[in-house]
């Protein structure tokens, strides 16, 4: 873990990984979504709209996993004071918010032809919308803190506290009655027929790799900006 705390070592690893994750992820996404659009059969009840699943499930996973990542990085930042952990947490925030937004939008488009409504305030939909707002609040907070030269500690605490929303999202369909259906994929197996299911893991892995690549790009951008600022400061003090 401490190996990654060193920005030089991190960059040696991050530079090749950015490209590899990005391109492999893109190929898998195109393959998974292509298969989901053209190769799989429609659902017996929902018809063609079931194809929205190949977007909706990966984006829901990334929205939630993103906040999980922010929480882990925030703990590392608070406990070990790794500056790189704070950068990682802030780099995840925007992609996490975007994928949460994609999840909400695709879910809304899916809901209209199946349930008969664009939006309902049930437990799952509402808790996912809260996640989007929590992301936006985190981004604003982290920006404000960085602008004032803070250490990122307030954002880190917010990152840890915000994790309470993840079990709410997960258990909402299990414990509360919701319009959203229950879990299709659990530890014990899946209630989705194999011929419909198979492109989903492909798209899921692809989107995840793409997400990692985007986070690495944002971390590299932040590190480079920090380097520029530090150098300019030094040049300013010793002319």
């Amino acid at each position: 873990m401490h190996i990654f705390a060193n920005p030089v070592r991190f960059l040696q690893l991050a530079r090749p990984l950015t490209g590899w994750c990005g391109w492999i992820g893109a190929v898998l996404v195109v393959a998974g979504l292509g298969a989901g659009l053209f190769l799989t059969p429609p659902d017996y009840l929902q018809g063609e709209t079931v194809r929205i699943m190949y977007l909706h499930v990966p984006s829901a996973w990334l929205g939630m996993a993103g906040w999980g990542g922010i929480a882990v990085a925030s703990i590392m930042e608070l406990v070990w004071r790794h500056p790189l952990a704070g950068i990682a947490a802030r780099a995840v925030a925007l992609p996490g918010a975007v994928f949460t937004g994609i999840c909400l939008a695709t879910g809304s488009i899916w809901g209209r032809p199946t349930w008969g409504t664009w939006w309902e305030w049930d437990g799952r939909l509402t808790s996912m919308l809260v996640l989007l707002f929590v992301y936006i609040a985190y981004i604003a907070l982290a920006e404000a803190e960085a602008d004032r030269g803070g250490q990122g500690r307030i954002a880190a605490i917010f990152g840890i506290v915000g994790v309470v929303n993840l079990p709410i999202i997960h258990f909402s369909v299990l414990w509360w009655r919701t319009l959203h259906q229950g879990e299709s994929i659990g530890i014990t197996g899946s209630s989705i027929a194999g011929s419909i299911l198979w492109p989903l893991p492909v798209a899921l892995v692809g989107f995840t790799l793409l997400f990692v690549s985007i986070v690495l790009m944002r971390m590299r951008a932040m590190l480079a900006r920090q380097k520029v600022e530090a150098r300019l400061r030094r040049m300013g003090t010793e002319p």
């Binding site: 799989t40 059969p41 429609p42 659902d43 017996y44 009840l45 929902q46 079931v50 699943m53 199946t114 349930w115 008969g116 409504t117 309902e120 319009l179 259906q181 229950g182 879990e183 299709s184 209630s191 989705i192 027929a193 011929s195 419909i196 299911l197």
Partner: peptide
């Protein structure tokens, strides 16, 4: 009226 479907997805020939 809203329709609520469940978590079982399958192709028509399996239904």
């Amino acid at each position: 009226i809203l329709a609520k479907h469940d978590e079982n997805y399958k192709p028509p020939e399996l239904a």
